[in-house]
Simulated assay, not measured.
Amino acid sequence: MKVILVNERGGTSRSFNFGGLSKALLGLCLLGLPVGAFWLATALPVAESDVLDGRAVKAWNKALRKQQEQIGDAERDAREQLTALTVKLAEMQARLTRLDALGERLTSIAKLDEGEFQFGVNPAVGGPEDPGISGVSDLPYQPPEFLDVIGDLADQIEDRQMQLSTLESLMARRKLQDEQFIAGRPITKGWMSSRYGYRTDPFSGRRSWHKGVDFAGKNGSDVVSVAAGVVTWAEDRYGYGQLVEINHGNGYTTRYGHNSELKVKPGDIVKKGQVIALMGSSGRSTGPHVHFEVYKNNRPVDPATYIRRTGR
């Protein structure tokens, strides 16, 4: 192969002869030019793509780490809430146990009919079956969720509280009735010196009607109310001397006469067994004693019937 090079300025020329090896090297060079150009054209985009892919991977890794942290925080919060719910459930169960124990104790103390108040068992419920939504009754049984269990427990506690409230009202009424129940003697020390009915009058010597009973004792000893009530009289009254009158409701009234000192005044609410006066000999009396009367519907009755009572 022969190559001639011509110089434009001097018009001279120069020739080169190539052998087989030279021809091969020259062909490789000529073929390498387009290959190199293609490589240069494609090498830069590939490198840029690699850079972009690396940034995306880092961004995804960062997002995943953040989500893992959020999941960890959520798990911790869930554990804390579950612990709090468990503690709350234990407190409610303990409260329910105390309510049951208290209710059973009060029921026993009140001597209520067996079965009237039942603590420790679920309240009785019932009613006709209503399928409601079609196919609901055919669904398999689903165990209650944790929150449903807490709700059921709260309902049981509310039921116990309702029973206790009813029991408290019942016991309060019964206690009030017991307090108003006239029973016992109007003194703490002394003896019965005169009974209800006809007797010889100690002043005139004639036969007269005695509408109460007399209890003799030591001057200044306690005079007590035989039942709870409201004081309607607390001052001097003809024949009775210093008198205390108490209205017990249900048509019952009691009177305590001949006292030396009064411990109550009109309008006072007195309890059963409360000291209302001190024994004396005021009014029409021959010595220290208390004249005790019982009225039912404004009519005097024999106090002996109520004195012998032992209470409810």
Rank of each mutant, 00 (worst) to 15 (best):
K23Y: 06
A24I: 00
L28W: 00
L30C: 01
L31E: 02
V35C: 07
G36R: 04
G36W: 00
G36M: 01
W39G: 09
A41F: 01
T42R: 13
T42K: 11
T42S: 10
P45I: 01
E48W: 13
R55G: 12
R55D: 09
A56I: 08
V57A: 12
K58N: 07
A59W: 13
W60T: 00
K62L: 09
L64P: 01
L64W: 12
R65G: 07
Q68F: 14
G72C: 00
E75P: 00
D77S: 08
A78M: 07
E80Q: 08
E80S: 04
Q81R: 08
L82G: 11
T83L: 04
L85S: 11
V87R: 10
V87Q: 13
L89R: 11
A90M: 06
A90V: 02
E91R: 06
E91S: 06
R95F: 10
R95S: 09
T97L: 14
T97G: 08
R98Y: 11
R98V: 12
L99M: 10
L99D: 11
L99N: 10
D100E: 07
A101W: 04
E104V: 05
E104H: 03
R105I: 09
S108K: 13
K111G: 13
K111M: 13
D113P: 09
F117Q: 05
F119D: 03
V121A: 08
N122E: 14
N122V: 10
A124V: 15
V125K: 08
G127V: 03
